[in-house]
Nucleic acid binder design. Structure first.
Length: 593
DNA sequence: GCCGTTTTCGGCCCGACTGTTTTCAGTCG
């Protein structure tokens, strides 16, 4: 069974949990957690790299010892340390660490004093009132554990960014109405444009923190206050989403915004940089130690000042993952990230002809209103029967309609395309003759998600060898929270795209956002263009482009890395090159590189 | 366990809130 990076990360994380319960050296524990994160975010597949006999690249925070353990995990699925720790502790005990309010110390007490080591046993003990008697525990703690376990057992997932926006933005507007408020910013992973958000962090600057706290608690959607201090409060909204509100004085705005935007790993790295310069970085500012223990604030009003204090230029929030952005900033090599207004067109959209909601003319007008200069109409092909996909006759008919409409349009040009299905055997769902007359062909997998990695990869590589193939749509097929990506060797796909001059789509639909950020970086590094496309099924869907751009920015993409930032004439040259080639697969008898 | 334009040893980010306790440990982000 293939061991994926996520599997390696899981074992390292489990080791960290178990070591924590043993109260091992906290820095050793952190080393395992950092390594788990590094491996989990890695763009190359470790098992595959090793299988090819190549050395692993030098990874930050992973030294000799962890490298050896990672090799063990790839070879056997585990490593001696993990096996030994698992024997020392009861199975399921690490689940208890996931319960909010329970850390290693309390879990140890529960285990040693009450023999509790599963969530079910914990719930039982809390209901029986056996927890309140333990040293350091009381009635309130017991009640909190009882509720936390119930929540844990009906565990809710992170919400999609678009959903978080629907709850966070009105709440931010509500808070802005409190007395003494200057700024209200939704920070956290929301500001970093992460595809999903675990909770909402709202930063407020105000001369009257109590008024902000009161305003927050009066918000009609607040269901339950979880914590409330003079400058900080947490609450659950009726939707189940947790919100943390934090108030700081205006002179701390930049430092607090940086702090609450995160990510945690990025913040730690920045603080370490500060430390090297004799500076303390916290959410109130950047401080230098003065005589007699006095501290002098040297930065904090703006984010720029915080970065400058540690010798860096301002880093865009989307990059703040401690994934190389600090090194890039230090070298003056930060990317100039693509912006929504850089997009000149959209290369994936549907109309009423298939499963869209609007007509060609309506979609053209909406695209123009969204600031676009061109829009590719790319209906489903006949295989997608539920969407009434187009056969050759209907496709030809639509092409004629587009020609007629284009003659009347001003300021927007429709392109003739198709989202053609990639069939199980890697052939396309429409004949070459039908595709040849189009401006572009977007190929997509909509069936047989369960093929093996090798089968799925060969299927897609073969499709990309077709004579007419411009863009690979939603390359992994995942639906956030609903469907896992299909198993595919993305590096081979990216390299095939480069060899064939094909672009990869970053589908901006908030449920897809596929390519993911790490594969955007891979595409950029391999010299492959990414198309940020709405996959619009209605006139409102061009709004989604902002989420696609957010993901592209997380993937370090600049305007030059994005196909649809090109002016129409340049785009046409790119597309023309993808639309009239010989079939590469025929000559090479299907053997991919 | 990692790491070094101060270091191969001795460091490793920092503050708010809660509950239980009486001055602070534990947890969280």
């Amino acid at each position: 069974m293939a061991v994926h990076n996520a599997d390696i990360a899981r074992v390292l994380e489990e080791i960290a949990d178990l070591l924590e319960l043993k109260e091992a050296n906290p820095f050793r524990i952190r080393a395992y957690r950092n390594a788990a994160r590094t491996v989990g975010d890695l763009r190359i597949d470790i098992a595959q790299t090793l299988a090819e006999g190549k050395p692993l690249p030098k990874l930050p925070g992973i030294g000799e010892d962890l490298t050896a353990k990672i090799r063990d995990i790839v070879a056997t699925g585990s490593t001696a340390l993990a096996d030994r720790l698992r024997k020392e502790m009861p199975p399921g005990i690490t689940d208890l660490l996931r319960v909010p309010g329970l850390g290693p110390k309390r879990v140890k007490h529960l285990w040693h004093d009450l023999g509790v080591h599963t969530l079910a046993e914990l719930q039982r003990a809390a209901l029986d009132g056996r927890i309140r008697g333990l040293a350091g525990f009381g009635e309130k703690t017991e009640a909190a554990i009882r509720e936390a376990v119930e929540r844990q057992l009906t565990k809710k997932q992170r919400v999609k960014l678009v959903v978080a926006a629907q709850y966070a933005e009105p709440l931010a507007a509500h808070l802005a109405g409190a007395k003494g408020v200057r700024d209200v910013v939704i920070a956290g992973s929301y500001r970093r444009m992460k595809e999903t958000v675990g909770d909402i962090d709202i930063l407020v600057t105000s001369s009257d923190p109590q008024a902000v706290m009161a305003r927050f608690e009066s918000y009609p959607e607040v269901r339950e206050t979880l914590a409330r201090g003079p400058t900080r409060a947490s609450a659950l909204l009726a939707s189940g989403l947790q919100v943390d509100v934090r108030v700081v004085p205006v002179e701390s705005f930049g430092a607090a915004l940086h702090y609450f935007t995160g990510s945690k790993a990025h913040n730690i790295a920045i603080r370490r940089l500060g430390q090297e310069r004799g500076l303390k970085v916290n959410e109130y500012g950047v401080f230098k130690a003065g005589r007699g223990g006095a501290e002098k604030r040297v930065a904090g009003e703006t984010e720029e000042s915080v970065f400058a204090a540690v010798g860096l230029p301002w880093i865009p929030p989307e990059l703040r993952e401690d994934a190389g952005e600090i090194e890039a900033a230090r070298r003056g090599a930060l990317p100039v990230l693509v912006r929504r207004e850089d997009l000149r067109g959209d290369l994936h959209a549907h109309t009423k002809a298939t499963d869209g909601k609007n007509t060609l003319a309506e979609m053209a007008a909406a695209a123009k209103a969204a600031g676009l200069e061109y829009l590719a109409i790319t209906e489903h092909s006949r295989r997608v029967t539920v969407a009434r996909g187009l056969d050759p006759q209907r496709l030809a008919k639509q092409a004629d309609e587009i020609d007629r409409l284009n003659a009347t349009l001003e300021g927007i040009t429709l392109l003739k395309g198709i989202e053609v299905d990639i069939l199980e055997d890697g052939t396309l769902d429409l004949p070459e003759a039908s595709l040849a007359g189009l401006d572009l062909v977007v190929g997509a997998v909509h069936s047989k998600f369960g093929l093996t990695r090798a089968q799925q990869t060969e299927r897609i590589l073969k499709a990309m060898d077709a004579p007419h193939f411009s863009i690979l749509a939603h390359p992994s097929g995942r639906l956030i929270g609903a469907r896992e990506p299909y198993d595919v060797d993305m590096l081979r796909i990216v390299r095939k795209a480069r060899a064939r001059g094909i672009a990869l789509e970053l589908n901006a639909h908030p449920e897809r956002l596929d390519l993911i950020d790490t594969y955007c970086r891979m595409a950029k590094e391999e010299g492959v263009l990414v198309a940020v496309s709405s996959d619009a099924h209605g006139v409102a869907d061009f709004e989604n482009l902002r989420f696609g751009v957010g993901q592209a920015r997380r993937g370090w993409l600049e305007a030059k890395d994005v196909l649809n930032t090109r002016p129409l004439a340049e785009l046409r040259r790119f597309l023309a090159a993808t639309m009239g080639r010989s079939a590469a697969g025929a000559r090479r008898s299907g053997r991919g590189r």
